[in-house]
Simulated scan of single mutants.
Amino acid sequence: MTATATPARLRAAAIATFLVFGINGLVFASWAARIPAVTETLSLTPGQMGGLLLCLAVGSLIALPTAGFITERIGAANTVRVAGLIAALAAAGVALSLSAATTMGTAVSLFIFGIGIGLWDVAINIEGAHVEHRLGRTIMPQLHAAFSGGAFLGAIIGAGLANIGIGLPAHLFVIAAVVAVATQWLPRYFVPRIPEPTQPTGDVASPQARSAWSDRRTLLIGVVVLGATLTEGAGNDWIAKAAVDGLEVTEANGAFMFATFVLAMTAMRFFGGRAIDAFGRVVVLRGSMAAAAIGLTVFVVAPTLWLALIGVALWGVGAALAFPMGMSAAADDPKHAAARVSVVATIGYVAFLAGPPLLGFLGDAVGIRGALLAIGLPILVALVLAGAAKPLPKK
C-alpha cells in the first residue's frame, strides 16, 4: 500500500471493500436460495445436486492456491475485476444452461463460476485485512456482515421471485449484469499496492508462501476456520432444500428459512465486534461453535417450521464470527499477512465449497436434513482448537 493512503482514501477503500463483499454475498445467495428450483428443473436427486455443487467447488479449489499470487502480482483491484467478469459470464452460462435444461452445460458453467468466486473471495479478504491494519481498528466482521447482508438480500429476492413464478434463468441474467458493472467500478477506490521487486510475493513457490504453509499457528487457525466455514457453507447450500424435503414446506418457505439463517449471521457480524473486544477471540470462537452445534441439532430434529426457524437462527449466530476472526488472526503480523490470509482462506474455502456437495451424496442415503448432523464433528474440532486464534503479542 502506498504512502498516498490518506485517511479519506482509506475510508473510501473500506467502503468499496464493504460493497464488494456485499455484491459477493448477493451473487452467492441468488444461486443458493434457489437450489430447489435447479433440482426440479434438471430432475436431480440430492446426490446429483451435490455433484453439480462439487463442480463449483472444484473450480474454486483450482483458483484458490494461486489467488494470493495473482493478487500480489496485479493487485486486489485488478484481481476483483478479472474475477467478477469471469463470475458474471459464468452466471449467464448457468442461466442459458438451465433454460435449455442441460445438466452438462450447468456443470461447466458452475465450474467456471467457481474459478471466479475463488479469486474474488481471496482478493477481497486480503484487501480487507490490509485496510483493517492501516485503519488501526477491527473491520473484518463488518466486511463479512456485508457479505451476509448481500446474501440476505439475495435470499429475499430469490424467495420473492420464486413465489411469483419468475424463473431462475431470468434472475441470474440480471445478477450477472449487476456483477459485471459493480466489479469493474468499485475496485477503483481500493488503495493501490505496488509490489516491491525485491520482496517475496504471494507466489506458492516463494519463501514467504512456503513459510505460511508450514507455520503451525496459521495451519491451526486454518483448521478452526475449516470447521467454521463448513458450518456456514452447509447452511448456505442446504437449509432451503432440507426444509423443503424434511419439513415438506414450499420452495418460498425454504428460501425464507435460508434468509433467516443469513439474517442471523448478518446481525451477529454487524454487532459481534463488541463481544470480541469484551471477551476476546478465543472465548467468542468457542461460544460461536457451541451455538452452531445447538442450532444445527434443533433444526435437524425440529418437528415444526417455527422450532426449525429458532434452530436456524441460532445456527446462523454461531456461524457468523468464526471466519472473519480467523482472517484477522491470520493477519496479526502485517509482514506476513497476505500469505497467511491466503493460506487460511484456502483451507477454509475447501470446507465451504467442497463440504456441502459431499453432504449431498450422504443425503441420498439418509436424507439431506439428517446428513447435516455430520458437520457436528468439525464444529467440535474447531471449538477445541479455538485457542490458536489468540492474538499475537504486540511488538
Rank of each mutant, 00 (worst) to 15 (best):
V224C: 10
K394Q: 15
A83R: 01
A107S: 15
P169Q: 09
A292C: 06
A259M: 10
A92E: 13
I375A: 06
V131S: 13
T71P: 08
V317S: 03
V249I: 15
L153S: 07
I239A: 05
S328D: 13
A386G: 01
G114S: 07
A90M: 10
I115V: 11
L362W: 00
M257C: 11
A374E: 11
T71G: 15
L305V: 15
A159G: 09
A319D: 06
G235I: 06
G295M: 05
A292S: 12
I157P: 07
T71R: 10
R281D: 01
A101L: 11
S43T: 14
T183N: 06
P356F: 06
A234T: 10
A170T: 09
L172V: 09
G326R: 01
R9K: 14
A240V: 05
V249A: 08
V38D: 06
P197N: 12
V122T: 12
W306A: 14
I139E: 00
P334N: 11
A205F: 13
P207G: 04
A267F: 14
V301G: 12
I379F: 08
N236W: 03
L353F: 15
D277H: 14
A339W: 03
H133A: 06
L172P: 08
D364I: 07
M140N: 14
T39W: 03
I294D: 11
A14C: 05
V108D: 01
V108S: 11
A292T: 04
G246L: 05
A331R: 12
V298M: 12
I221M: 06
G254L: 03
L119Q: 00
V38F: 04
A243L: 07
A67R: 08
A374M: 12
V262N: 09
F261V: 07
W185V: 15
A159Y: 02
R11M: 09
A322Q: 06
G202Q: 09
V350H: 07
G272P: 13
V384G: 05
N24L: 09
A212Y: 00
L96A: 15
G280I: 03
R81L: 08
V224K: 13
A293W: 07
V58K: 07
A329Q: 02
A205K: 08
S288Q: 11
G387E: 03
A374T: 01
A291N: 04
A177P: 02
L362P: 08
F69P: 00
V317C: 13
A90I: 12
A57H: 03
S148W: 02
M289T: 12
D332W: 02
L110G: 00
R134A: 14
A33T: 14
P324G: 10
A16L: 04
A12F: 03
L64P: 15
G68C: 02
D333E: 15
Y189F: 12
L98I: 01
L305R: 02
A76R: 03
T304P: 09
P65D: 08
I310S: 09
R9W: 08
G165A: 08
G158K: 03
A32Y: 11
S328V: 02
A252M: 14
F256I: 05
F279T: 05
A330P: 02
R9N: 14
R81Q: 10
A382G: 14
A209E: 09
H133I: 05
I194M: 10
V225F: 09
G246V: 09
R9Q: 03
A100M: 15
A77T: 10
A242D: 11
L161I: 08
V381T: 12
A365M: 12
